[in-house]
Write a protein that binds this DNA or RNA. Structure first.
Lengths: 192, 192
DNA sequence: TTTCTAAATGAATTTTTATTCACTTACCTT
DNA sequence: AAGGTAAGTGAATAAAAATTCATTTAGAAA
């Protein structure tokens, strides 16, 4: 017997991600997807019962496996400012290098495929947990403004998301100077 | 002779905007659109040659007419900080009150309907011009950081965009305290 | 090797969705 | 009030896209 290739599922999902980045969910066609993934249309239906299931699976796949750990390089002994800097840098880099992820979520939440049933939002927040943690620590040490953490995280991520898009849209690299300016705005904005 | 109702075109466009906010461009169907607009499907084709033209027209319509003037309430004699505050507040309020606009642009730029031919991006930037202006003035007066204006505007709009979404997603109103915290982060971030 | 089972294929089919058009209606002109 | 013209209608049609399935292939078990 031939066994189901575990890798083929993610091969299809990655192809879907690539296409969605280009033409949006509105432009995703199963035939195109099969071609992009290098399989026959029927094959897609061996791995996913239908298009909805495919998209939904992609959502979960991205939440679970796509994001690199934001705390990489962060030492517990680092002062808050340095931790924020490293995490923010990781976050920005990840968004610039894998823009598909942000692009997908942006699309998905407004698509007919998204239902509140996909309430793995809890899990999604897990990715942002390091940001919440460092902000909590900063507030405890009174080096970060005493503002509702949700709002603070929102503002910070908003800045970084948009900064990542800037470099994508202009096609120009995000320079060291850009990063320094960005972090300056970010830190001066949230510090006490 | 019966004359083409000028108002009906925008009636259809507004209906499209409403539906797109709910289900995304991926979910927009001409039949649904006609129902939402209160006309027959054929009527839509009197005003727009096809779906692509409709979406494209909506894009132009939004760029041209949808955004309220961001400088409302701003006096030339106001100091930079106050001008920034008023403009930022207008921007945020507009995004909270008319979330459809931001939602549409988010979708559109990644959809198969968007082509670089729609390079009225120049015109779009017009809406943001007041932000560029006040930043230029602030930099000239050395009260705002000497950072590339594009980056600064990106960061500021990013914050505000995301702040607007927060109140939409949670369903909770953006309080006065939220606004004060937001402006504090924004201003401390960009001021010298 | 041979057999057997499930993966893989892609043309054919079904389903969904966009678009047309023969007809009706409203309103302007005379 | 009659005639003419363009807007409006929605069922019918065309086009596009999703999904199926009879058939082929790969590889595991015997």
């Amino acid at each position: 017997m031939r066994t189901k290739d575990e890798g083929k599922e993610s091969q299809i999902l990655e192809a879907a991600l690539r296409l969605i980045t280009q033409t949006g969910l509105a432009g995703l066609k199963m035939a195109d997807l099969a071609r992009e993934a290098g399989v026959a249309t029927g094959t897609v239906y061996i791995y996913f019962i239908d298009k909805t299931a495919l998209i939904s699976r992609l959502y979960i796949y991205l939440i679970r496996t796509a994001w690199r750990d934001l705390t990489s390089g962060v030492a517990a002994s680092d002062p808050v400012r340095i931790q924020v800097q490293k995490i923010a840098h990781n976050y920005l880099t990840e968004n610039i290098e894998r823009p598909e992820i942000g692009a997908f979520f942006e699309q998905y939440y407004r698509s007919p495929f998204y239902t509140k049933a996909d309430n793995i939002l809890t899990e999604e927040n897990t990715a942002l947990q390091p940001i919440y943690d460092v902000i909590a620590r900063g507030q405890a040490e009174t080096v970060i403004k005493d503002v509702a953490p949700d709002l603070l995280v929102t503002l910070v991520c908003g800045m970084l998301n948009e900064a990542a898009k800037l470099s994508l849209y202009t096609g120009e690299a995000f320079t060291k100077a850009d990063w320094e300016a960005t972090f300056s705005v970010l830190w001066d904005g949230i510090k006490r």
